[in-house]
Measured scan of single mutants.
Amino acid sequence: KHLIERYYHQLTEGCGNEACTNEFCASCPTFLRMDNNAAAIKALELYKINAKLCDPH
């Protein structure tokens, strides 16, 4: 559950690194913003595939 919350935060708030290159992070310049419901679904999907989590900045 904690990991899913981290994915959700990364998708909605980002890691804080303006030069982030993680396509699944709101801080990445090319990230496409999504609403909270879509972010919750995506967080579950990312958890299932063990996607990369950013280190908070």
Rank of each mutant, 00 (worst) to 15 (best):
N36F: 10
R6M: 08
F31G: 11
C20I: 00
N36I: 07
K42Q: 08
R33C: 05
K42S: 05
A40F: 04
A39M: 09
H9Y: 06
N36P: 12
S27V: 02
C28P: 02
E23I: 10
A19E: 13
K42C: 03
A19R: 11
H2S: 14
Y7C: 02
A43D: 01
C15K: 00
C54S: 08
A43S: 14
C28G: 05
L44M: 10
A40E: 15
I4C: 06
R6T: 12
N50A: 13
C28I: 03
Y47R: 14
A38D: 03
E13W: 05
F31S: 15
Y7D: 01
T12E: 03
N50Q: 07
D35R: 07
E18T: 13
E18N: 15
H2E: 09
C20K: 00
N37D: 14
E18A: 13
T30N: 09
A40K: 11
Y47S: 15
R33G: 13
N17C: 10
E13L: 13
F24M: 11
N50E: 10
E13M: 07
P56M: 07
R33A: 07
P56D: 11
H9E: 06
R33F: 02
A39Q: 03
N50G: 12
E18W: 05
L53E: 09
M34T: 06
Y7A: 02
H57W: 03
A40I: 04
P29Y: 04
L32P: 15
A26V: 05
K42E: 07
F31R: 06
T21V: 13
T12N: 05
M34E: 09
K42A: 05
H9R: 14
C25S: 01
R6A: 12
T30V: 08
N50L: 06
D35V: 05
L32C: 08
T21A: 14
N17F: 07
N36K: 13
A43F: 00
L53G: 04
E13F: 10
Y8P: 01
T30R: 14
D35M: 09
H57F: 15
I41M: 09
E18D: 13
A38G: 04
G16V: 04
T30G: 14
K1P: 01
C28N: 12
Y8D: 02
T12K: 08
A43L: 01
L11F: 02
H57V: 15
A39W: 02
D55F: 09
G14E: 00
L46D: 02
Y8I: 13
Y8L: 14
K1F: 02
L11T: 04
E23M: 12
